[in-house]
Computed example of a mutant assay.
Amino acid sequence: MSLLEVRNLSKKFGGNLAVDDISFDLHQGELLALIGPNGAGKTTTFNMVNGQLNATAGSVRLQGTELIGLAPRKIAHMGVGRTFQIAATFASLTVVENVQMALLSHYRKVYSFLSVAADQYRDEAVALLEQVGMQSQADRPCSELAYGDVKRVELAMGLANNPKLLLMDEPTAGMAPKERNELMALTKKLVVERNMAVLFTEHSMDVVFAYADRMIVLARGKLIAEGDANHIRNHPKVQEVYFGTGKTFEKNQSTQATT
């Protein structure tokens, strides 16, 4: 059985069918990219899986349990982590305190004073920072970090609930090429080591083709292609949607497709 099963998923906004009857699976230990041109329905699909949007029709199951209709917090406690296009960290807190706050949320602990919260789960937070290469900067304020390092901290926060599935919304947005590749190489390593699954949206085609195990391509709300890099690179509908006829991904590996 697949870890995540999406079946006949649709979403209407008024008379507009933003996502039109799409189905796909995601397995443990797999890095799956959700790509498509502007207005394809990527973000809408992503947010239905996460519980931020209610589906008009269809099913999203995590290890056989239906997620449609559940609140995002409930879905998170079932083992679904999330990172955001704009890094969601607290700039006034230290690196380790940010991860501690994520752990407090996971364990459903609430503290009125940060001085009390600061004593909780520090060792576990440091261990997560070690996994993303940020242990040495644990006590630095997040406000002092380079943006690539902030994204690593956010990744550690996303791992705080020991996710079976991690959702990453344009994880490399705003990053330089070297930082993009380092972050996705790290993500790939964590997928293997933790045997978890990652579903990510991404606008940098170089990152997608270098690191995704499989890709699903949306256009105007419909799933038009699914497969590995070679299949997607040579798929005529994908080439037409991104570039028009007569062009290929081999000539356009760095092309940017906006969400």
Results as ranks from 00 to 15, higher is better:
227 G>Y: 00
127 A>S: 13
49 V>L: 08
91 A>E: 15
54 N>Y: 00
150 V>Y: 00
246 G>R: 08
257 A>W: 08
36 G>H: 09
109 K>M: 14
43 T>C: 09
128 L>S: 06
245 T>Q: 15
116 V>E: 12
142 C>D: 04
259 T>F: 15
25 D>S: 13
147 Y>G: 10
258 T>R: 14
131 Q>Y: 01
170 E>F: 00
180 R>I: 07
227 G>W: 00
87 A>W: 03
10 S>F: 03
230 N>T: 14
199 L>H: 06
60 V>P: 10
108 R>C: 00
47 N>M: 12
195 N>M: 01
77 H>T: 05
207 V>C: 10
191 V>I: 09
159 L>D: 11
86 I>H: 15
25 D>N: 15
144 E>C: 09
206 D>Y: 02
253 Q>C: 06
34 L>P: 13
19 V>N: 01
239 Q>S: 06
5 E>Q: 15
155 L>Q: 10
24 F>G: 05
223 L>P: 02
51 G>E: 00
167 L>R: 12
188 K>G: 04
198 V>A: 02
111 Y>Q: 13
156 A>N: 04
73 R>A: 13
108 R>Y: 00
199 L>C: 09
24 F>I: 04
137 Q>E: 09
107 Y>R: 09
150 V>Q: 14
174 G>Q: 09
23 S>W: 00
259 T>S: 14
119 D>P: 00
145 L>Y: 06
71 A>V: 12
124 E>Y: 02
